[in-house]
C-alpha cells in the first residue's frame, strides 16, 4: 500500500526539499501544495498525464514561474524566489520539454552556453567529458542545432545541461516525440548519467520505463501528488496500473 503522504526521503539530509509549493498563472492555480524530496545521487520519477502541472513544477523549481506559497530548499540553501540564473548557478538544471536548444547556434556553441554561469575555468574538461558521453554530438560539432534530428537535439539538450556541472538534473519528458528505439537509447543514457552519481528527476508520461530507472516515484494528479513511494511499490500498485497502464 502506497501512502499519499509518503514523500519524505528516509535519510537525514535531502539535496532538494519541496514543501507545500503552490504556483500558477494569473487566476489559475496549477500546483496546489506539492511536497517532495530528492537525495543526492538519487533517481526520482515524477509521473502524470498531460496538463496535471508537471512542467509548472519544473519551472517553479527553476525559478521561471514564481511559487505563490511554500518553500524550495536546494543543497542546504533556500532558493524560493531566486531568479533562474541564480538557481542554475546553484546547480539545479532543468532540461526542458521540447529541448529548447538554440537552433541558430552550432552544437559546440550550444554546449558552451550550458556552462554560461560557470565561466571558462573548467569548461574545456567538461566539454570533453560531455562529448565522450554523447559521441554523436562530436560528429555534429559545427552543425547548427536546428538541423539536428529530434533525438540528437534531445542529446544536445541533456549535454548542454551537463555542461553546467549540475548537482541535480531535471529532465522534462526526455522521451517525447522519439521513436521507440530512440526512447530505449535515451533511457539507457539517463541510466549511465545517473550511475555516475548525479541526482536525476525524470518527469515523464512514460510510466514503466521511468519507474524501472528510478528508485522512487511521485504521481502528480490535478496539481497534487496523489501517490508517492518506492518505484517497485508504485509499479505494483493496482490503482496506478489501472489508471496509467490500463491493466
Amino acid at each position: 500500500m502506497v501512502l499519499p503522504n509518503d514523500w519524505r526521503v528516509p535519510m537525514a539530509e535531502a539535496l532538494l526539499t519541496v514543501e507545500d509549493v503552490e504556483a500558477g498563472y494569473g487566476p489559475v492555480t496549477v500546483l496546489r501544495g506539492v511536497s517532495m524530496q530528492v537525495a543526492a545521487g538519487e533517481v526520482v520519477a515524477v509521473l502524470g498525464s498531460n496538463g496535471v502541472g508537471k512542467s509548472t513544477l519544473n519551472n517553479t523549481l527553476s525559478g521561471i514561474v514564481p511559487a505563490r506559497a511554500g518553500r524550495v530548499r536546494f543543497d542546504g540553501a533556500d532558493i524560493t524566489g531566486r531568479d533562474p540564473a541564480a538557481i542554475v548557478a546553484a546547480g539545479l538544471i532543468q532540461v526542458p520539454e521540447g529541448r529548447r536548444v538554440f537552433p541558430n547556434l552550432t552544437v559546440r556553441d550550444n554546449l558552451l552556453l550550458g556552462a554560461y554561469r560557470r565561466g571558462g575555468r573548467t569548461r574545456r574538461q567538461t566539454l570533453e567529458r560531455v562529448v565522450e558521453t554523447f559521441p554523436r554530438l562530436q560528429e555534429r560539432f559545427s552543425q547548427l542545432a536546428g538541423t539536428l534530428s529530434g533525438g540528437e537535439q534531445q542529446m544536445l539538450a541533456i549535454g548542454r545541461g551537463l555542461m553546467a556541472d549540475p548537482k541535480l538534473l531535471i529532465l522534462d519528458e526526455p522521451s517525447l516525440g522519439l521513436s521507440p528505439l530512440l526512447v530505449e537509447e535515451m533511457f539507457q543514457l539517463i541510466d549511465r548519467i545517473a550511475a555516475a552519481g548525479l541526482a536525476v528527476v525524470i518527469v515523464e508520461q512514460n510510466v514503466v520505463q521511468s519507474l524501472t530507472l528510478a528508485a522512487r516515484g511521485y504521481v502528480l494528479e490535478q496539481g497534487v501528488f496523489a501517490m508517492a513511494g518506492a518505484a517497485g511499490d508504485l509499479l505494483a500498485d493496482p490503482r496506478l496500473r489501472a489508471t496509467y497502464l490500463g491493466l
Binding site: 527553476s62 521561471i64 540564473a85 529548447r100 537552433p103 547556434l105 554560461y116 554561469r117
Partner: peptide
C-alpha cells in the same frame, strides 16, 4: 564571446536561454 553567444541564444530561444542561466 560568451556575450555574443548569449545574444544569439536570446534572439531565438528565450526560455532555453533562461534555463542555462542567461539573464
Amino acid at each position: 564571446t560568451d556575450l555574443g553567444r548569449a545574444i544569439r541564444a536570446v534572439a531565438k530561444e528565450r526560455q532555453g536561454a533562461r534555463l542555462v542561466g542567461i539573464r
